[in-house]
């Protein structure tokens, strides 16, 4: 166990919106090179946890270490190694696809060669046409915007890839391709944290899965060690949410 490096380490995280506490003493440890699933119903704190990890939300207490760096103390260093795809595709809609990707790449200081290499691979993998990148993003369909956000989140070769509901708006083929990219990404040593309410997908591809309910982590299941759990996660999830 000692040689396993922790890429995302959350300790006693508490977060409130005004007087309403939404996260209660969250503890999570995501290892390097693993595909970590984070499941829960809508509105239970998945996105809030992610935004705390990203350093885009304040939290009252607790500690979040990303690659041993404290998000509160060294946010810039942390952000430079993370790629994030939000639940709703968010990008500058007045830009063309290519302009948006240029913007992101410039911020992350990507070399033109690396950019082209990554872009060609991702365009092909996500079935987005090159000519689509020359259209204004506002004219894209929801699925196309989602694909663009996925490309933008990976274009700079992040060490940690965080995805919030990545399959929403994607067709079956693109979902299949995305899962393949996620698997390849971790195979190459990246760490992938994926939040979703698509339990079947998470159970199928993830190495470990955490279930969150009412802002508290219910349990973390190691599906790599116990593959039989892959078929039971759905039942566990439903049973948990049916409990009062």
């Amino acid at each position: 166990m000692d040689n396993i490096k922790s890429m995302i380490k959350i300790t006693s995280l508490n977060k409130s919106y005004g007087k309403k506490q939404v996260l209660f003493d969250i503890n999570l440890d995501v290892h390097e090179g693993e595909l970590f699933g984070f499941i829960g119903k809508n509105g239970v704190g998945k996105s809030t946890t992610i935004e705390c990890i990203l350093g885009s939300k304040l939290f009252e207490s607790g500690e979040i270490l990303i690659n041993d760096l404290d998000i509160k103390k060294e946010p810039i260093k942390v952000k430079s190694i993370i790629g994030y795809s939000p639940s709703e595709p968010i990008c500058y809609e007045d830009m063309k696809g290519v302009e948006y990707l240029e913007f992101i790449s410039s911020i992350y200081h990507i070399s033109p060669q690396k950019f082209m290499q990554n872009l060609n691979f991702l365009l092909k993998a996500l079935d987005l046409k090159e000519e689509d990148l020359y259209k204004e993003i506002r004219s894209y369909s929801h699925g196309m915007k989602q694909k663009l956000c996925l490309i933008a989140s990976l274009i700079h070769n992040p060490r940690i890839w965080i995805l919030d509901e990545p399959t929403v708006g994607l067709d079956a083929m693109s979902t299949f391709e995305l899962t393949k990219i996620m698997k390849d990404y971790v195979k190459l040593g990246g760490t992938c944290f994926v939040a979703s309410h698509n339990i079947d997908l998470i159970a199928k591809i993830c190495d470990r899965v955490a279930i969150i309910k009412d802002g508290k982590i219910f349990n973390v299941f190691d599906l790599k060690k116990e593959p039989s759990l892959r078929n039971k996660i759905s039942a566990i999830f439903i049973k948990l949410y049916n409990e009062k």
């Binding site: 830009m95 240029e102 790449s105 410039s106 200081h109 033109p112 090159e130 990148l133």
Partner: peptide
């Protein structure tokens, strides 16, 4: 529109933010 072959306009972080 006619499809151009992809060209990447490399710029620094500050210029990218100004352009935005």
């Amino acid at each position: 529109k006619k499809v151009k072959s992809l060209t990447y306009k490399f710029t620094n972080e500050t210029n990218a933010l100004i352009r935005k």
